[in-house]
């Protein structure tokens, strides 16, 4: 019964061949090495955290989309893994469940699901628990402790709604030398000590589960960019503008402001620039807009880190960039061929 017909369509006519599930699946693959490194570094607690958050995100997605099964597009899995990677490794699991639920329910489903969310869902979840549990989200544990594969950090299995136990005593038993309980950024802010680039690249510092090794994240990002699964301009714009801003500050007062390399490699900037700022639904579509968006995130990150009350600024910088995306898109629309440029009488 099929018959040939001529289809008339407006541009674009070319399709890259990547469907949404393909892209999302590849993003998940590229995240697996980072997850693996995180588990190797922090042991059972990090594994439990990543699994719990991802499972919560998938369950919430399923629950809130009763008419259509949207798990197949892998987007909820990405949100879950990314959210898990930005939380501290010993984050209590019940709080992680809250974070995962908020990420999907408030960050995504409420706006109509994939593609309609104005903000990155993983960051919405993280911002919520950051505001709700400010103490737990800044409680860090040492990496590579001896029994990390045989026991959990005591905070992991905190009873729901209860306060996590104090882990200072537990950390002391681990026999890790010189553990300060502060991230490199916090140590810079409050003690003016900067960590070495080598430590930051290889990930032997205190941080969230998945933001320790800048080198590994960079390599995974390179894979995605080469396979054209993400827009390389965004990480380049974010990292470049952050480095330039940091360099300008250092030129102004070298004693007080750290080197650009420290700014680039510390905290969540790397994972934020590569995996979160590039979220397709929440970043601009025009080429010029993408650069503007990236620069706003990079500059805001450095400014929040230097002058804000918090030690880390990537999360709020990206959320701000997300909020500006529709505006950026509106003002950077390309000229339609044959119109504009000159006003004809």
């Amino acid at each position: 019964m099929s018959k040939h017909r001529i289809e008339l369509r407006a541009a674009p006519h070319q399709h890259s061949g990547h469907s949404v599930p393909t892209i999302m699946r590849n993003v998940v693959y590229s995240l697996l090495p980072i997850c693996g490194f995180s588990v190797w570094q922090y042991g059972l607690s990090a594994l439990a955290l990543l699994l719990t958050v991802t499972a919560t995100c998938l369950a919430t997605e399923r629950l809130l989309n009763r008419n259509a099964n949207t798990l197949g597009d892998w987007s909820a899995a990405i949100t879950g893994i990314l959210l898990g990677l930005t939380l501290p490794p010993a984050f209590p699991l019940w709080m992680a469940i809250v974070a995962g639920f908020v990420a999907i329910a408030i960050g995504k489903a409420m706006f109509g699901g994939l593609g309609h969310n104005p903000f990155n869902p993983a960051l919405v979840g993280r911002a919520f628990v950051q505001a709700a549990f400010p103490v737990a989200i800044t409680t860090w544990v040492p990496a590579f402790s001896a029994n990390r594969f045989s026991e959990f950090v005591p905070t992991t299995f905190t009873a729901p709604l209860m306060m996590p136990p104090d882990i200072v005593g537990w950390v002391k038993q681990q026999g890790v030398d010189a553990f300060t309980g502060a991230t490199p950024l916090a140590r810079w802010k409050f003690e003016n000590v900067t960590a070495s680039a080598h430590d930051l690249l290889t990930g032997t510092v205190t941080a969230s589960a998945g933001e320790t090794s800048a080198l590994l994240i960079l390599m995974c990002g390179a894979y995605l960019a080469i396979r054209k699964f993400m827009d390389w301009r965004i990480p380049v714009a974010v990292l470049g503008s952050a480095a330039l801003t940091a360099w300008a500050f250092q030129l102004y007062d070298p004693a007080h402001y750290p080197a650009p390399l420290f700014v680039l490699l510390s905290g969540g900037l790397m994972i934020g620039a590569i995996y979160m700022a590039t979220d397709m639904a929440t970043s601009p579509v025009t080429p010029v807009g993408v650069w503007i968006y990236g620069v706003i995130i990079g500059v805001m990150t450095v400014i929040i880190r230097y002058f804000g009350g918090l030690t880390e600024g990537v999360m709020y910088a990206i959320l701000l960039g997300n909020a500006l995306t529709p505006l950026i898109d509106q003002y950077t629309q390309p000229r339609v061929y044959g119109t504009g440029r000159k006003e004809k009488p």
């Binding site: 505001a131 209860m162 306060m163």
Partner: peptide, 20 residues
Amino acid sequence: LFGEHFQPWVVMVLPPGGFF
């Protein structure tokens, strides 16, 4: 309601909590 070990959700007593 929950004993002394309750973990308060700080965000709820801040302005954003009102909106949520």
